[in-house]
């Protein structure tokens, strides 16, 4: 005879096991990076320029470069992505053009990041003559994270209950007033989630910045947005594969700083999101 409780327990066990397996790699990455990287962290490592062919000194220029690049990418992608998401969720009708736009966004999300790099090189570095610069890199990263921001923002906007829109319109608010005063404030937490995801991706990608901005070795801070810059992911690649005899703790220390930086930037967005959720009086 079949025992439904036994099969149920077996099913629960495998479901739980699969869930647990997700935690393991995350935990291990964090433990290994902290264990091997933390000893490298000191004030000099964070504030000094690289010395002795990047085998000593600090990684300050790479930290600054990554902060610039991520900030630039968000400044570019957030407004454009948000406005596009509002159009797609609130205004667009189901016609050929809009289906084409939605298809384009999905495909943009599927393009490999190295192709973005090549695209950025052709368009921003060469055609617009921005050169290898923070501007070119930010623009390339911005385009790369656009689909993430558009998709999550659209989901956030569409999850605002239709009844809120109806009431607002029925009280004589225009469509734009409804969006501005009712839909957007209720969608901000979701939009910020999209921003967090985009931010993490922009900070971590190496390929898109490879041809557009990243300097192999630049022991000073960039002077303007038309200047090249070092960036943490590329620096990590360089000291891990291109420069012989770099101490392990410097490599893991760099990875640790990259992780921490993304975490700190996410934390800021999470705090803003929390504030908005609290203000929303559910």
């Amino acid at each position: 005879m079949k025992n439904p409780y036994r099969t149920q327990n077996i099913a629960f066990f495998f479901l739980f096991l699969a869930t647990l397996l997700i935690v393991v790699p995350v935990g291990l990455i964090i433990v290994i990076i902290i264990q091997k990287g933390l000893p490298a962290i000191n004030w000099q490592f964070l504030s000094d320029i690289p010395r002795q062919g990047m085998r000593a000194g600090g990684i300050f220029p790479a930290i600054v470069g990554t902060v610039y690049l991520v900030t630039g990418a968000i400044i570019l992608a957030l407004p454009i992505g948000l406005l596009a998401a509002i159009y797609l969720s609130e205004y667009s009708k189901d016609n050929l053009l809009n289906r084409l736009i939605k298809l384009a966004i999905v495909n943009l999300a599927g393009v490999p990041s190295v192709v973005y790099g090549l695209f950025g090189l052709a368009l921003f570095v060469v055609f617009f003559k921005f050169g290898a610069s923070i501007l070119s890199g930010s623009l390339t990263l911005g385009i790369m994270i656009l689909p993430v921001i558009i998709t999550t923002s659209r989901e956030a906007l569409e999850s605002v209950p239709q009844s809120f829109r109806e009431v607002s319109l029925s009280l004589g608010a225009s469509k734009w007033q409804t969006i501005r005063h009712i839909v957007l404030p209720n969608a901000i937490p979701g939009i910020l989630t999209g921003t967090i995801l985009g931010l993490g991706r922009a900070a971590g990608e190496t390929a898109p910045i490879l041809f557009t901005v990243a300097a192999f070795y630049l022991p000073r801070l960039p002077n303007s947005i038309f200047d090249q810059a070092m960036a943490l992911p590329y620096h990590l690649y360089v000291i891990s594969t291109q420069v012989p005899n770099v101490a392990e703790k410097i490599r893991y220390g760099t990875a640790f700083v990259l992780l921490a930086l993304v975490l700190i930037m996410n934390l800021v967005a999470i705090i803003i999101r929390y504030k908005f959720r609290k203000r929303k009086k559910w």
């Binding site: 009844s163 809120f164 009431v167 319109l169 009280l171 004589g172 608010a173 225009s174 009086k281 559910w282």
Partner: peptide, 18 residues
């Protein structure tokens, strides 16, 4: 906008804003 200010609506489910 003018019409809906003049002709208002109460819905089936009470729907105050959050």
């Amino acid at each position: 906008v003018v019409l809906r200010k003049k002709v208002g609506m109460v819905f089936q489910r009470p729907n105050p804003f959050p």
